[in-house]
Design a protein around this nucleic acid. Structure first.
Length: 462
RNA sequence: UCCCUCUUAGCUCAGUUGGCAGAGCAUCUGACUGUUAAUCAGAUUGUCGCUGGUUCGACCCCAGCAGAGGGAGCCA
């Protein structure tokens, strides 16, 4: 048998007959007739499967008894036009080799499984149609993220995974230590972190933003794209303990510029998906989220609305709606409020800007009203908050005041303050949750189903 | 962490106002000259989540525990 391999995608898109083609993949279904059998073969290269046509007698070999749904095979034969309506090409096989057989215990069947069940077999679920589509789109969109920023001259910076900042204000950190948990060194009745590996309390990053700002003060436009860790005990369909985040940071940019870039970025990613992931989107549109493609096309052609936090509060107060949580200026917007705004009032993506300073992080730039900060959240229907960002406080004295007001010791972030001390400038940035983007693009409703091997409280198997 | 719901065959799910445990799919056997998650006929498949309680009798009612899902908070 030949050693070169054609992919199913190449063959399904072939423009001509091809003799003696070799193709390898996993069996989706076997349909046996008296004289002839059909095998649907998928190799992950695309949504579709290649129809293998094989003489029934060829399958009767003893070595092929374990050929069923899930088996891995290599096939050689001629690619010819298919006489049937469902596909234009099929492979007339003359050699078939079983690389890895299956037995009756194979958990994936040629039928629909629940996502909950598939999560319990996360090592096998990439072979399911839905997850093939999810992870092909995840790969494509990761590439699109880099392409957007590289086309615009942004520098890709790898910010650290391990950090000793204990005050980023973005959530609980996972502790990183080499101390023996049974007998840690003690000082004054508390653990002596000075004796730990890094000479300080260390943890996994909850955001690359602070280091991103440092690089923006040298390269002007930068972005990060990497894993992020939150040790929050969050049990929702849109939170994970380990997720991927994209965080651009731009010198010489204000909140307005920040929103412009965020909007262009989001539009670019949706457009990229529509142009490059057509087959997988068609699958989601048909099987997972009817109307998905229409919604994505409307978003690309439609408007991103802007509304200040204060205006949002007014809209909510005037809505006449009985919300579970009361609406009051100074209180953070609840999920039900955000959903009402993005799904009903504007029926599309909206930026909510200029939040009260007491409900936002210390590094967000204080507005001239001395009450609000130059923050922005991008809310989208069905997913909610997908981007959060702000113009950063570039004034040293104001930043120190805000840190103290937030209970953060300025000396603990002296390096962060230094860039305000020397050569400071206005700058802004935001964070996009990559998985939330994928949820929006695919219509998948649980973040655990757009991450290859999800980590959530109590779950780090696989 | 809080609130609600769920847990029955390998998978998806019915079910009994407390009285012999059910279907479809999968699997196996057979039929079928080109199928499309093929179709048709037959067969196999159970710790009814776990522990205890009530009862002549519990899959069903009660309590505790475990796991899962949805919602909330935190946020991306």
């Amino acid at each position: 048998m030949s050693t070169s391999r054609s992919t199913v995608k190449e063959l399904l898109n072939s423009s001509k007959q091809q003799p003696q083609i070799r193709v390898c993949g996993w069996v989706r279904s076997v349909r046996r007739g008296k004289d002839i059998a059909f095998i649907a073969l998928n190799d992950g290269s695309c949504q579709g499967s290649l129809q293998i046509v094989v003489a029934a007698s060829l399958l009767e070999a003893p070595a092929l008894t374990a050929l069923g749904t899930g088996a891995c095979i290599a096939v050689q034969g001629n690619l010819v036009p298919s006489p049937a309506a469902e596909q234009s090409w099929e492979l007339q096989a003359d050699q078939l080799e079983l690389l890895g057989g299956v037995d009756a215990a194979y958990p994936l069947q040629k039928k629909r499984h629940s996502f909950e069940y598939l999560r319990s077999i996360a090592h096998l679920r990439p072979r399911a149609n839905t997850f093939g589509a999810v992870f092909r789109m995840r790969s494509a969109l990761a590439f699109a993220v880099h392409q957007f920023f590289q086309e615009r001259g942004f520098l890709y910076v790898h910010t650290p995974i391990i950090t000793t900042n204990d005050c980023e204000g973005a959530g609980e950190m996972f502790r990183v230590t080499t101390l023996n948990p049974a007998t840690p060194p003690m000082i004054d009745g508390r653990i002596d972190w000075a004796q730990d590996f890094f000479g300080n309390r260390a943890g996994l990053t909850v955001s690359g933003q602070l280091q991103g700002e440092l690089f923006a003060m040298a390269f002007a436009d930068i972005y990060t794209f990497g894993p992020t860790f939150r040790a929050e005990n969050s049990n929702t369909s849109r939170h994970a303990s380990e997720f991927w985040m994209i965080e651009p940071e731009m010198a010489f940019a204000d909140l307005e510029r920040n929103c412009e870039v965020a909007e262009a970025f989001f539009r670019y990613l949706v457009t990229y998906a529509l142009e490059h992931c057509r087959d997988d989107l068609a699958f989601f549109n048909e099987r997972i989220a009817p109307g998905l493609i229409d919604r994505l096309e409307q978003l690309v052609g439609g408007q991103f609305h802007r509304v200040s936090y204060s205006e949002a509060i007014r809209l909510l107060e005037q809505s006449g709606r009985a919300f579970e949580f009361p609406v009051a200026w100074g209180q953070d917007l609840q999920s039900e409020h955000e959903r009402y705004l993005t799904e009903e009032v504007f029926a599309g993506p909206i930026f909510v800007t200029d939040y009260p300073q007491q409900i936002k992080a210390f590094y967000m730039r204080r507005n001239d009203d001395n009450k609000t900060v130059a923050a922005m959240d991008l809310l989208v229907p069905r997913v909610g908050e997908i981007i959060g960002g702000s113009q950063r406080e570039e004034r040293l004295e104001v930043l120190e005041q805000r840190m103290i007001a937030h209970g953060i010791e300025p000396a603990s972030l002296d390096w962060y303050l230094d860039i305000r001390r020397w050569g400071s400038c206005p700058h802004a940035g935001f964070g996009l949750g990559f998985e939330r983007l994928l949820m929006y693009l695919t219509g998948m409703e649980n973040i655990r189903d757009v991450i290859p091997f999800p980590r959530t409280p109590g779950h780090a198997r696989f």
